[in-house]
């Protein structure tokens, strides 16, 4: 038996919104330590990894490890039926091919039950190495979203350059070019407004902006975003999911021939 009850159900709605444009189908892995998911986009350029720890749920039970094959479009449709203030409970029997979703209004006067068919998925699991990065940049998530949106009007690629002075995002295209530079700003009143840069070595990498724009669907989950980079390896874009976990997006760089 698997059962997970989340009082702040809006978190699950936001997580789903943050995943659905990148991944069409995914295996949600349930273990006693929590829920996790790892999936590549259709063109195998990016990978998303979600962790929601068991202790972040008000109730969590998982007697046997389960891999629930989920059509993300269906999951989105059903989670849209939940109100933002609803408590969401997920339930599945060990051998069932269905996931039950229950939405309770805050005062308990409305209870909705949905059942979603699960799929048999044969998902390729990649081994993500634990590694140190040359640069880690933390910045307001809305600023990152704004930069990606603005520069995607200029060109298809963004060059991210991180030095001790700051981080620069540049794009160029047929009509011209654009550059946005963010400098470290430790004086901001709110922690989420701070820009912090930790660097052991300067980094410059080129990425397809359309993927970064998809990652920014997670903006509503967290006030800040962390970008981790080293030369010639995938970028990591991480959003915290409150104090219960994270969504990490990995994006392969573009490399000169």
């Amino acid at each position: 038996m698997f059962e997970a009850r989340l009082v702040q159900g809006s978190l699950l709605k936001k997580v789903q919104e943050a995943l659905k444009d990148i991944v069409q189908e995914a295996s949600w892995d349930c273990t006693s330590s929590g829920l996790s998911l790892q999936a590549m986009d259709g063109s195998h350029v990016s990978l998303v990894q979600l962790t929601l720890r068991a202790d972040g749920f008000e109730k969590y039970r998982c007697d046997r490890n389960l891999a629930m094959g989920i059509n993300m479009g269906s999951m989105s449709k059903i989670l849209k039926c939940a109100g933002n203030d609803d408590v969401i409970t997920l339930k599945a029997e060990d051998t069932s091919d269905r996931l039950e979703l229950m939405f309770e209004s805050p005062k308990g006067e409305k209870i909705s039950n949905y059942e979603m068919k699960l799929m048999d998925l044969d998902c390729e699991q990649l081994g993500i190495p634990d590694q140190e990065y040359s640069c880690s940049i933390k910045m307001p998530s809305h600023e990152f979203a704004r930069i990606c949106r603005d520069l995607s009007q200029i060109g298809e690629c963004v060059v991210i350059t991180c030095t001790k002075d700051g981080v620069q995002f540049s794009a160029k295209g047929d009509m011209g070019s654009g550059t946005v530079k963010m400098s470290q700003n430790l004086g901001a009143e709110k922690e989420d407004d701070q820009v912090t840069i930790e660097m052991t070595e300067p980094v410059q990498l080129t990425f397809a902006i359309k993927y970064l724009n998809m990652f920014t669907k997670a903006t509503s989950l967290s006030g800040s975003v962390c970008l981790s980079m080293s030369n010639d390896v995938p970028l990591v874009v991480e959003y915290k999911v409150e104090d219960m976990g994270h969504i990490k997006y990995f994006l392969a760089p573009k490399i000169e021939d």
């Binding site: 990978l47 392969a252 000169e256």
Partner: peptide, 14 residues
């Protein structure tokens, strides 16, 4: 121009 690399080429299967 720069070529897109696959994410799989960085992370080996397990």
């Amino acid at each position: 121009s720069a070529q897109q690399v696959s994410i799989r080429s960085f992370f080996t299967g397990r």
